[in-house]
Amino acid sequence: MSGDRIRGAFAGLAVGDAVGWPAGRHRSALHAPWSRRLHRELDAFAEEHRVTTLPVPFALNQPVAPLALGPSDDAEWLAWTALTIDRPRAEAFRELREQSPDLRARISVATALDNLARGVEPPASGHDNPHHFDDAAAVRAVAFGALGRDPAGDARVTNAGDGVLGALAMAAAVAAAVATGSAAQAVEAALAVLPGDTAIGHNARLAIEAARAAGDPFAAVPALDAALLDHVYSYAVGAALTVPVALALAEVSGGALGRAVPAAACLAPLADSAPALTGAITGACGGFEAIPEGWTASARTLAGCCLPHLAGTDLIELTEELV
């Protein structure tokens, strides 16, 4: 097992998380609530006056650091997972709610926390959940996969069905990438845990086929959009979409983060988490040293936009202690 590849998985996820527009939106949570209200009002103004491109996210007299390129929700949840990985998972979530009552989370996690509070335990906490299919657990599974652990118990606290399968697939892919450095083997390991008669298993094979036919990550973007994306109602973070895209782009890029992550960010509806998951697999394939230093420098310090108690934590230093 390679320490450089484990650091690469964590840093790669943070770099992918920092890429693109959604990170700025998450980080704007650090500003005063009125700045986000103004944001909504400016949207309404633009609609009314038929003008485009207003200045958002919005800072006005606020500290500007959150507007700089940097990591957001996924890197924070990954760090929390790594820090609490030895705790029983339902307990860890209960403790988090105590520790960070103002946390922000995906709908699956928010509902699971409600379920735990009303006495609904895992796996029902993740199953009786309208967003049981999202990729919150898949993000956390990067920690489990990088450290060679089973993500299933953690995943079932907040997710079910495709959401749990997404976590199993990400952990398998990252573990294989850490062990071998091969994107092809990472994808093969992930497919082995994704049954073909599930949406995520169906989509993973469809995405890989589309990307192979295109032959290149950037060339695969329109093919993935046409074959895979939900044009009816995009949840942005559905594991049955984001994990297959990450697998397909990791494979067709040959494990090159610098080619795979930008392509993932081009799939606008998935730009919140698909780049992060893509970055985790490809970061593990190439290792930490292969990621451009400017990106790791920008992506390593957590903002605390979802988990305020993690503000200022250095993700890479945290990873050093785990390796």
């Binding site: 309208p130 299919f133 008669d197 599930t198 949406a199 169906h202 989509n203 939900d230 009816v232 109602y233 949840y235 559905g238 049955a240």
Partner: peptide, 12 residues
């Protein structure tokens, strides 16, 4: 079917 009911996220 059943993939028609599985691939969108509003199966519930």
């Amino acid at each position: 079917p059943p993939m028609t009911g599985l691939v969108h996220q509003h199966g519930w």
